[in-house]
């Protein structure tokens, strides 16, 4: 059984800063990491592999440095990784990104059929949660988003049962394979990789595919192939506040209670 996990390298959001004067991002100090949701997707794929057997391949689009997150995935137990890297990919929005990834998936599938595709529910730099559904549409297979548990996988009957988070609880869904599953962090605990896995990962050289390797149409990617464009980037407006309470803690507490009490039913 072949499980493919689509992953993304993101700047550690906690450490991205913006220059308030120029509105440019200062990413120099922010280390690039494997998108945390994707890490859980890789872990889930590895967990499924350990239960049912099979192979886990990770696929990412990015600059050559993105090999690091492929290695990180191998530490978690993935078997192989492919980096889609080409100048033509740069500047792609979610629509174009899902195109490129689905072309990569098609190429991968031509070599080895894919039974299940996993993604993180969203990337922490964009937070759009759109690439997973985009891939499902392009491959014309089912999509299961916000999955918090994989209950069972039946590779013979070709179906999967998952728990999908909704506002008041969760849906238990049975879906046909192959399909795209995007996962929540709650789906599993990341396992601490063993030293031999670390060594294998550190020495791993992922395949790198460019535009031609995935038979992709250049017009569908990059800045020009992306339907959306960024007009401007700005700092959120500065807010001005209200009343600063003063006095002893008791005084302040009583003032606050007085003004808020009527709002509490």
């Amino acid at each position: 059984m072949h499980i493919v996990v689509c992953i993304k390298q993101v700047p550690d959001a906690a450490q991205v800063k913006i220059d308030p004067k120029t509105n440019t991002l200062d990413r120099s100090s922010a280390p690039a990491i494997l998108n945390p949701y994707d890490a859980h997707a890789v872990q889930e794929a590895v967990n499924i592999k350990r239960l049912y057997g099979g192979r886990v391949t990770v696929l990412t689009m990015g600059p050559p440095q993105a090999k690091d997150i492929i290695r990180k995935s191998l530490e978690l137990g993935a078997d192989a990784g492919i980096l889609l890297s080409d100048r033509a990919f740069a500047g792609s929005d979610t629509w174009a990104t899902s195109y490129i990834l689905s072309q990569g998936l098609s190429e991968l599938r031509a070599r080895e059929p894919i039974d299940l595709i996993l993604c993180g529910k969203q990337a922490i730099d964009g937070d759009t949660a759109q690439v997973g559904p985009g891939i499902a549409r392009r491959l014309n297979i089912g999509q299961l988003t916000y999955i918090q548990k994989v209950e069972s996988v039946d590779f013979v009957e070709r179906s999967i049962i998952v728990h999908r988070r909704v506002d008041q609880g969760y849906e238990v869904i049975q879906a046909k394979l192959p399909c795209v599953v995007t996962v929540e962090k709650e789906i599993n605990e990341l396992q601490y990789s063993s030293l031999p896995e670390m060594m294998r990962a550190a020495q791993y050289q992922p395949l790198v595919w460019g535009v031609n390797d995935i038979h992709a149409e250049v017009n569908n990617m990059g800045l020009n192939g992306s339907p959306t464009t960024v007009r401007k980037i700005f700092s959120p407006p500065e807010r001005t506040g209200g009343e600063r309470l003063t006095g002893s803690i008791d005084d302040m507490a009583n003032q606050l209670v007085n003004v808020l009490l009527e709002k509490i039913s």
């Binding site: 629509w95 759009t128 949660a129 559904p133 549409r137 392009r138 999509q143 916000y146």
Partner: peptide, 23 residues
């Protein structure tokens, strides 16, 4: 931009080949 809306929007935008600004 709810669980349902975000699930649907990506699929619709991809199928229509149009741009989507999320959230």
């Amino acid at each position: 931009a709810t669980t349902m809306g975000r699930d649907l929007a990506g699929a619709v935008a991809t199928d229509l080949g149009t741009g989507l600004t999320a959230d």
